[in-house]
């Protein structure tokens, strides 16, 4: 309702608004459009200084083909998947349980525990870096996918618990009480009463965690090295040194690396946004 709906404004205002929209969008996405344009240009265009003109030939298939067949990119993408999906499952599972405990039961220290989870979620990564790296090395998990997954599950549990607990708080408590009167065991209340109602929260967190973990760079650099276990965010720097100054290939590589979370976002938009607002903005 605010600002004044365009439908109530003059005809000129409506037309100019509609005309300005695509213009504003292009301006907003300009750096990205530039990269997309680079990624379909032939190498010759860069040598000739034709950076911003029309591509002299369409080399999209060629450039993207080379990303997939002449570099470690597929390996990095696969690593990213192997890191992201178990983390997603682990963090959602742990936090669903923790959120249930904090949202449904009253006990001493409930709020304190909840606040520790929130606070932990805000700490700078650097204060965890040295001990976590040390722990990972001692567990023999340095430069393994497992090492990254374990840390990510632990850290994301903080944020997820915040979200889950608030979501469960908003559910009608009488459902739990009714089940208790019926003599249903507590774990069954979780599994058969609360969990089915949590589906939107589970979906929101799953897409959000997917994006966060896919896009993680810091921990990938701290806990892994080389194509054996590195995800695509860290791998892209190696990819770029392989194709130094070959902007058409580096652009294509970046687009490939960025695409999976983008696809996830467009497929699950509603859940994604519900997650981002931390469930606080309805």
């Amino acid at each position: 309702m605010f600002p004044t709906p365009i439908a109530k404004r003059s005809r000129t205002a409506q037309v100019s608004y509609q005309a300005f929209l695509p213009f504003a969008l292009i301006l907003w996405l300009l750096p990205l459009i530039a990269v997309a344009l680079f990624s379909i240009k032939p190498e010759a265009d860069f040598a000739n200084g034709n950076y911003w003109g029309w591509p002299s030939s369409f080399e999209g298939f060629n450039n993207y083909g080379r990303v997939f067949f002449e570099s470690n990119m597929p390996r990095y993408l696969f690593n990213s998947l192997l890191i992201t999906i178990p983390t997603m499952i682990g963090a959602v599972a742990l936090s669903a349980m923790a959120g249930f405990a904090l949202g449904v039961y009253r006990f001493r220290g409930n709020l304190l525990l909840f606040f520790i989870f929130i606070a932990g979620n805000f700490v700078p990564f650097q204060i965890l870096m040295v001990p976590v790296r040390d722990l990972t090395i001692n567990l023999g998990l340095y430069d393994t996918i497992m090492g990254l997954v374990l840390f990510h599950v632990a850290f994301q549990t903080g944020f997820c618990t915040l979200f889950m607990r608030n979501f469960i708080r908003a559910l009608p408590y009488s459902l739990v009480e009714a089940a208790r009167v019926e003599g249903v065991a507590e774990w069954r209340i979780f599994w058969y009463v609360v969990l089915p109602l949590m589906k939107p929260a589970l979906a929101a967190l799953a897409v959000l965690i997917f994006t966060f973990i896919w896009n993680d760079y810091f921990w990938a650099v701290v806990l892994t090295q080389g194509p054996g276990a590195q995800p695509v965010t860290a791998g892209i720097t190696e990819f770029n040194s392989q194709f130094r100054a070959a902007y058409h290939l580096m652009s294509a590589g970046s687009i490939v690396a960025a695409l999976p979370p983008v696809a996830m976002f467009f497929l699950m938009q509603k859940h994604f946004i519900a997650g981002l607002t931390l469930g606080a903005v309805k």
Partner: peptide, 24 residues
Amino acid sequence: TPWLFLAPAMLFFAVYVIVPIGQS
């Protein structure tokens, strides 16, 4: 029950987040 449900999350969070702050 709440403690059983909290145990895995607390364990992970303690090992990877809370204790490392002190160690740092």
